[in-house]
Nucleic acid binder design. Structure first.
Length: 325
DNA sequence: AATCAGGACTACC
DNA sequence: GGTAGTCCTGATT
């Protein structure tokens, strides 16, 4: 999933859809990484809200039937926001969008297709949130979050957008507490990115509300169905490191940049980006200080237990499941 | 420098 | 008690 945002070669949409953003600063914060190489998140997943794909609460409320339908009002759109550009931004959109008939006039055609792109974007956002829920093992509805879940979400969001550490500013807050806070409350706790966190939380809340009305079924992709059940159980269940590693390995489309099979039949895998995998594990376990040194120590504990070992020909960052799938 | 191996201790469930 | 996190020393790549 998620390939709609960016092709696998990492080519970058050079501009975002120009959707309204209520907070100029937050928008800038997203753009701060001037060389926005890829809209993908650190997991290799597409990020679920991108610099230009911000949905303001107001905009979402414009259309109660489809609160996620992004308003791309003609006055808000830049002159260069054409269908062609939109499709460049979402390369896979071609395969999702019906071929228009020649009779349709240019303007209508563009509106029609943009609407389809928007609907697709909404679907992608929902899927991305669902993916994040599974990775973090948290409920999709922020109202259901415990303090630990809130910290996980914060850590995740920090990680995703390379924000300064804000977890400490939101300690001992449950999801309900978080949801009852105003944007100003968020800013008071974090001047730098409070508004961004507020906006991000708002997106999750809206998505959750939408899911209640329209269960995920329709948005479910083939990839989602292969996701191991063990990580989909809310509330949080402890997960073992070896399970987590398998989980990443089972999603090569998203994680092959950081971990991949060398020989799946034999259970041999390689950690391509040790720091990245460690960060993901740290987020999953709510351990901000996790690093590869510690992660690898845990892997080595599996040697005695016969869960993971080094392959016969030992190589750096290469391990082997004793009982491959 | 990064990775690997493993001991020792601690915290949490 | 099991599991994992943390810190450590020393070896290897």
């Amino acid at each position: 999933m998620g390939s709609t945002w960016c092709d696998q070669t990492g080519s970058t949409p050079q501009f975002p859809l120009n959707l309204t953003h209520p907070h100029g600063d937050a928008k800038r914060a997203w753009h701060d990484d001037a060389d926005v190489k890829s809209p993908r998140g650190p997991l290799g997943l597409p990020e679920f809200s991108r610099p230009g794909v911000y949905l303001s609460c107001r905009d979402r409320l414009v259309n109660q039937d489809n609160p996620w339908l992004v308003r791309v009002a003609s006055e808000a759109a830049p002159p260069n926001l054409t269908l062609t550009k939109a499709l460049e931004t979402f390369p896979d959109a071609h395969s999702h969008i019906q071929e228009p008939t020649l009779e349709v006039e240019g303007e209508q055609l563009e509106e029609c297709c943009l609407e389809q792109v928007q609907t697709m974007v909404v679907g992608e956002v929902l899927k991305d949130i669902d993916m994040a829920c599974k990775l973090l093992n948290i409920a999709p509805d922020p109202l259901d979050w415990s303090c630990v879940h809130v910290q996980k979400w914060l850590l995740w969001t920090e990680h995703l957008y390379k924000l300064p550490q804000v977890c400490k500013m939101f300690q001992e807050l449950s999801g309900k507490d978080l949801c009852s806070m105003t944007e100003e409350d968020f800013r008071q706790r974090s001047l730098q990115c409070g508004d961004m966190l507020y906006a991000h939380l708002d997106i999750w809340r809206s998505a959750s509300g939408m899911k209640e009305r329209c269960p995920l079924g329709e948005n479910k992709s083939v990839a989602d169905e292969s996701w191991p059940n063990m990580v989909s159980n809310y509330p949080s269940q402890p997960i073992h490191l070896w399970q987590f590693l398998k989980e990443l390995l089972l999603k090569p489309n998203n994680y092959s940049r950081c971990i991949r099979w060398i020989n799946k039949e034999k259970g041999i895998f390689k950690i391509e980006d040790s720091a990245h995998v460690a960060r993901l594990w740290g987020i999953r376990k709510n351990r901000p200080a996790m690093n590869y040194d510690k992660l690898s120590r845990s892997i080595r504990q599996y040697y005695k237990k016969g869960i993971i070992r080094k392959p016969d020909v030992s190589r750096r960052l290469v391990y082997q499941f004793v009982n491959p799938v």
